[in-house]
Design a protein around this nucleic acid. Structure first.
Lengths: 204, 204
DNA sequence: GTGTCAGGATGACAGCTGTCATGCGTTCCT
DNA sequence: AGGAACGCATGACAGCTGTCATCCTGACAC
């Protein structure tokens, strides 16, 4: 029998946090030491308990899972980090791995995979969704120029053509032209759709 | 000792679905008969098992939790429905209660409350977050007509004016007019902003 | 120095968007 | 029955949106 795997959880949604703790506690070889709603509290807990594994969400208040991962690997490199997130964005995966995460698991994967992923990262293995892992290499890269990106972001937030032209000292035609370029590069059919697409790929 | 409470779960995010099932299964007086990723499958399961309680998310593919609630109360009125959602929107709560839901629990409530809420709705009690319950009374109510709501929802999803006109057998002018009405009622300045506002209040 | 290329900037133009005045049918008071 | 209120439907119109052809500039290769 191998040693018990001690786990700390960081997840901001309370119901999911409790449910994940219950899910992991069922496993005989896993012990949940504590679960926390933000990165700062989780970091303290990791410092105190030095668990084998930290399971962390990305989008959390105070300190994101990505920052948390970096701090944990810096201060307590023996703790393996498993990122558990909704977002299948290659940009997040790349940043998670760069920060030193051992695993990256999506919330729409079956719950049976969680305990297995925890066991594998605890042994020092790397656990990444194969589909996502392949995406990271042939990920499309942002086709937008700086000007296009800036204008698309602000237009997507609801700023008007006239307002943008005024604040950037351009004519309205020019602003519309950048948007037109962005729309065409992204295969969208309106500025709003273009903004949605760009955001979903992490380009804005 | 009271009888076992039999539960069916409807939740589209796989990890949460499995974790909730684990959480409820820990309770000695609760039995999870099955858990399903969309409303249609959950409806079939309710028909087959006639559980005491259905725990349902709102935003799911194929059939939303609100539609599911209405269908369940129509076909199998003995099953009590507990809505479990991220969204503290009075509009959702009102529609859930109108559809016959017995409870409305937020995903950012502690996981300990879930089993308790399940027990209470199984006894026929009504379980609603007190803060949210008070909001429902002084909440603005949806100013949109059925036609306006339908068209705004689909326009917000990116359907074009021409496409909407075709599929609804209206002229483009008429479609634009409904959108114009909706925009004005919601204080927006474009169809997209109007859709965003309406969605945030749970009116779409 | 010359050619090439990408990004920035512009205005004309066709087509789409939101607004408004208007008409029609239903429902509900009085 | 009359009429007020409401929702549904329409088309004309002004203004905004996205597209396109075009020009200018600076960076880079040869």
């Amino acid at each position: 029998m191998t040693q018990t795997i001690r786990v700390v959880l960081a997840e901001d949604q309370s119901m999911l946090r409790g449910a994940l703790a219950a899910l992991l506690s069922i496993e005989a070889d896993v012990e949940v030491l504590g679960s926390f709603p933000d990165g700062e509290l989780a970091l303290q807990a990791v410092g105190k308990h030095r668990p084998e594994v930290l399971v962390a969400d990305i989008e959390m208040p105070k300190m994101t899972g990505l920052e948390l991962t970096a701090r944990v690997k810096e201060l307590y490199p023996d703790t393996h980090v498993l990122i558990l997130t909704t977002f299948a964005r290659p940009g997040y995966l790349r940043r998670a791995l760069d920060a030193g995460a051992s695993g990256y698991l999506l919330k729409d994967r079956p719950s049976e995979e969680l305990a297995d992923a925890v066991r594998r990262v605890s042994r020092g293995e790397r656990v990444v969704d194969p589909q996502l892992a392949s995406q990271i290499w042939n990920a499309e890269k942002d086709p937008l120029t700086d000007r296009e990106r800036l204008i698309l972001r602000r237009a997507g937030d609801g700023e008007t053509t006239a307002g943008l032209a005024r604040s950037l000292r351009l004519t309205e035609g020019t602003v519309r032209n950048y948007l037109s370029e962005a729309i065409s590069k992204l295969g969208a059919s309106s500025r709003f759709e273009a903004a949605r697409i760009a955001r979903s790929k992490g380009w804005l």
